[in-house]
Design a protein around this nucleic acid. Structure first.
Length: 628
DNA sequence: GCAAGGTC
């Protein structure tokens, strides 16, 4: 009988895709007991080399198999002082709802010579792979373990991955294991400490869970930071110069090179020098072709930011809708950091699939008829998933309102990526008037190209400028001083918040929306509608509790050497750097866990010692109104 | 009753 190889993917959709490619479509599907998503696919495949022709069972897990938690005697909140959670014994167990999946792997491993792990090629995937391996070894201690390395589910790529397996990256799996332990200990310790301590301080906090997490707190910190900048803003008056020329029945506004200054007397003096000069001289006439670049291939973070902005859906809704579209097979996997298309993907074929669409089908046809361009490549590649793109066309009447919006965005964005940049002609005129320089710009859009399908970008011709000759002299129609005031920044919007999280490494593409939802759920922040109608924007405003927590923690570490507030992203960033050291093999998992725990333990001890800082902040913002 | 990370 042929040798048997067990293959396990990270999710059912990948198991099916890989099975399809390896078997050429000829496989048998078996349901497993206890889980309706996971299936076993059976077929034969020639792995070549030492393995040769084998019978294959391809199955999957559904994300992580196991979870980490404290031993039973530490689970009750009153069972131990919160600080002891830094050392309390922890145990990794298979999640209850994953038991049938783990059983399936152990059983299949019994009859298999080898295990091929097909989890995503990222850090979490490496760890999930180690969880799969542990189950397989429990079923068959002698099973040989290999890992397939693939970054998309294109047929040739998948088959090559099957023929050239590598080993699991133990370093990366260890790094994730360290993260899991740290997040648990630190999250639980601070959550219990602050909840138990603050619940009794003011009536408003009674019965409330006041959670701490290494991602949710910095997220809150960004919101509070902006809020305080708005609150503390003091407007300043400024003055500037503007020059106007009426020529060829057009009115040209020249802007001051210095923009504006905060000293009126100085600006007045400068204006006088201009007026004395009487004539202005054209010092630069620059005409040059310009272009507006088509967008980069779509990543999750970009989808969420653009979605908040143009589709009026919050990031969590967008992700839910996108997942639905993915499960139904309409778009590719929606959680990706990759903004470059693999050369192996047949983009034209994907463009052709959009022909039937009433709104952009004609545009797709024009692309194939000669206007197609290879997409730009960004600098990110998660080596697991391609950029988000439509996989097949779907009729709008098969989708609900939100699905329609998100699908349309993904489709238009994809077609835009495969288009040419918009082309135009820009004109820059610079003049010298007295000692001062002024300039004006004109734009003529010549070819709209991608703008025709990507309706979210705006780029329009400005008013035509009259003709200017280099060196010519003219007398301005008007020259005067204008007065203005600096304006306060706005409260944080969701796309801005996601941008900050992304830039500071808070959360992953898959979890950013969850952290934002979490701080809403905990009532650390609330949503405010700025403006009305179509131009309205949702903005985040911290609640009194949110401000109290950030101010309290900032006070806790105030004046302490090297101590960074928990409301800032720095501690999390440091943890991330240490995880990279595990990945590169320069530090062990144990070292990193100890170092990071020491770092957070120090903050924890300060917090306990100066708990009054937190309590005072809560009383200040949440105390009864009647109290004096 | 705590976290963050996978995925359904």
């Amino acid at each position: 009988m042929a040798r048997k190889i067990l293959c396990v993917a990270e999710k059912p959709a990948i198991a099916r895709a890989v099975a399809t490619h390896l078997s050429g479509g000829a496989f048998q599907t078996h349901a497993i007991r206890g889980n309706k998503y996971v299936k076993n696919y059976e077929f034969d495949f020639d792995f070549g080399g030492a393995w040769g022709n084998c019978s294959v069972t391809m199955t999957s897990v559904v994300g992580h198999l196991t979870g980490l938690d404290f031993d039973r005697q530490y689970k009750g909140w009153m069972s131990c002082p919160p600080g002891s959670l830094f050392e309390a014994p922890v145990e990794e167990t298979v999640d209850k709802d994953k038991l049938p999946i783990a059983d399936n792997i152990r059983n299949q491993a019994k009859y298999s010579k080898a295990l091929f792990i097909w989890t995503d090629c990222d850090r979490e995937g490496e760890h999930i792979g180690s969880e799969v391996r542990n189950q397989a070894k429990a079923g068959n201690a002698r099973i040989e373990v290999k890992r397939a390395k693939f970054s998309n589910t294109e047929r040739a790529h998948v088959r090559r991955a099957a023929l050239e397996p590598v080993n699991l990256d133990e370093y990366q799996a260890s790094a994730v294991s360290a993260r899991i332990e740290l997040d648990l200990r630190i999250g639980a310790a601070f959550t219990r400490l602050q909840t138990l301590q603050l619940q009794t301080v003011v009536a408003a906090l009674k019965e409330k869970v006041i959670s701490y997490g290494s991602c949710q707190f910095p997220t809150l910190g960004f919101v509070v930071d902006r809020y305080l900048r708005v609150q503390n803003f003091k407007p300043e008056v400024f003055w500037g110069l503007k020059v106007i020329l009426s020529r060829e029945s057009k009115k040209v506004n020249f802007l001051w090179k210095r923009v504006h200054l905060f000293d009126r007397a100085v600006v007045t003096m400068m204006l006088e020098r201009c007026l004395v000069a009487k004539q202005a001289k054209v010092t630069k006439v620059n005409q040059k072709p310009t272009s507006k670049w088509r967008p980069l291939p779509l990543t999750t973070v970009d989808l969420q930011m653009m979605g908040s902005r143009f589709l009026r859906l919050d990031s969590q809704t967008i992700m839910k809708v996108a997942e639905g579209l993915y499960t139904k097979g309409f778009i590719s996997y929606p959680r990706t950091e990759t903004d470059q298309f693999d050369k192996a993907i047949d983009l034209k074929k994907l463009v052709e699939k959009q022909y039937p669409d009433e709104s952009w089908g004609q545009y797709a046809r024009e692309l194939i008829d000669g206007k197609f361009r290879t997409p730009r490549s960004g600098r990110h590649n998660d080596k697991a998933h391609p950029p988000i793109h439509p996989v097949t066309w779907v009729s709008p009447n098969q989708l609900n309102a939100n699905e329609k919006k998100v699908y349309e965005f993904v489709a238009r964005r994809f077609l835009a990526c495969c288009s040419d940049d918009a082309k135009g002609q820009s004109t820059e005129i610079e003049i010298q008037y007295g000692d001062e320089f002024f300039h004006t710009n004109g734009l003529t859009v010549l070819e709209r190209n991608y703008l025709d399908v990507y309706v979210y970008d705006k780029w329009e011709s400005s008013q035509q400028l009259p003709n200017f000759e280099l060196g010519e002299l003219f007398e301005p129609t008007e020259a005067n001083i204008f007065e203005g005031k600096t304006t306060a920044p706005n409260y944080l919007t969701e796309p801005e918040l996601i941008g900050l999280m992304d830039a500071n490494g808070i959360g992953t593409d898959a979890t950013m929306a969850e952290h934002i939802a979490k701080i809403k759920e905990r009532e650390y922040v609330a949503i405010n509608q700025r403006g009305s109608g179509r131009s309205s924007v949702q903005e985040f405003i911290p609640t009194r509790l949110g401000v109290a927590l950030v101010e309290g923690y900032d006070n806790v570490v105030e004046g302490l050497p090297n101590s960074v507030s928990l409301s800032k992203p720095f501690l999390r960033k440091e943890m991330e750097l240490r995880m990279l050291e595990i990945c590169s093999g320069t530090k062990t998992r144990q070292e990193v866990v100890q170092q990071s725990l020491d770092m957070y333990r120090e903050v924890f001890i300060h917090t306990q010692r100066r708990i009054n800082m937190l309590k005072t902040a809560c009383r200040k913002y949440l105390g009864e109104e009647t109290a004096s």
